[in-house]
Amino acid sequence: MVCEWDEGRIGRSSRPPGNIERMFQSATAEAVEERARQRRGWNRHHSLPYALVLLIVAYLGVFILFPIAQQFLTSFSNNVVGVDKVTWVGLRNYERLFEDEDFWFAVQVTFTYMAFVVVGAVSLGLLAALLLNRKFRGRNLARSAIAVPWAFPEISAVLVFLWMCNPTFGVMNVFARLIPGIENNLNWLSDPKLAMPLVIALSIWKAFPFTFLVILAALQAIPRETYEAAEVDGANPLQVLRHITIPEITPTLLLMAVLMSIFSFKQFTLIWLTTGGGPYGGITETLVLRIYQTAFRFFDLAYGATLGVSGFVIVLGLTLLFVYAQQRQDRARRR
């Protein structure tokens, strides 16, 4: 195989300046150091990853990390739009937070919503991916069909959803009435018992095509021989699923669980435009809705930032769990 890329040029040019000094050292010293580095498990292009990562961190730093730091600062101020004078108030916003029952209730609501959306979207995505990974006529058509909800703008998804769930003439009543025992139209989003399940269903509908797509890609990356070997052994489909497919795609499922947690944690449009956190008592009001209301409707940017930082800490905890699991997976793979 002939490689057109000049490895030396790329490798060297991306070294940090510290290495230039080393070039003036004696050849013996360099050789010794090279050997030492190899012992430590470093390869020759050890500066490349740092250059790549620095590029990405710098990019994200400008657009995301810097704004996050700013919000963190805001949470220690009294920045309410129109206040006499913006000053630092120390931990006062955090004191308010701990006494704020609505905040703690919103955290509960957020966890409930997240749990159902994560489980729902990942399992539905897995189910769809398993079904559509089989060979059959019209498979591409079905795959495209399932991706459609994802392609839909959220605003329009909400509009048609509201239309379907209208208590007076929504088409959902037609379906609901097929269930024995239901003779009258339901109140749907105005019903305190139905509001949350409906919002969750809408969110899963919108999100699962994404998990489906990624899981499908992971399924296709499983080498065919792995299955062939199992078939020779006479394993039935369920055994194949349990002992081969699922273990092979566990990292993907894990990743999807994290991404769906983030998706559901940050979800705003789908909840705000359907229930607005109601029907009453904040039954469907997640943290993000509360943040939005506080900052943009009540003009209290400081407390909005405080809520944001608290949510950030909560989700960070969840993510640490994931990274830990991922690292264990990685180590197992590299061993």
């Binding site: 129109g82 109140n187 105005s190 019903d191 305190p192 109601g278 029907p279 009453y280 008592g281 904040g282 209301q293 409707r297 009540f298 209290d300």
Partner: peptide, 21 residues
Amino acid sequence: IFFNQEFGNVVMDKFSEVLVA
């Protein structure tokens, strides 16, 4: 008048309970 929305939210939230429950 400076806190119209926040004031309204408290009222609407409680009043919604009257309407639907």
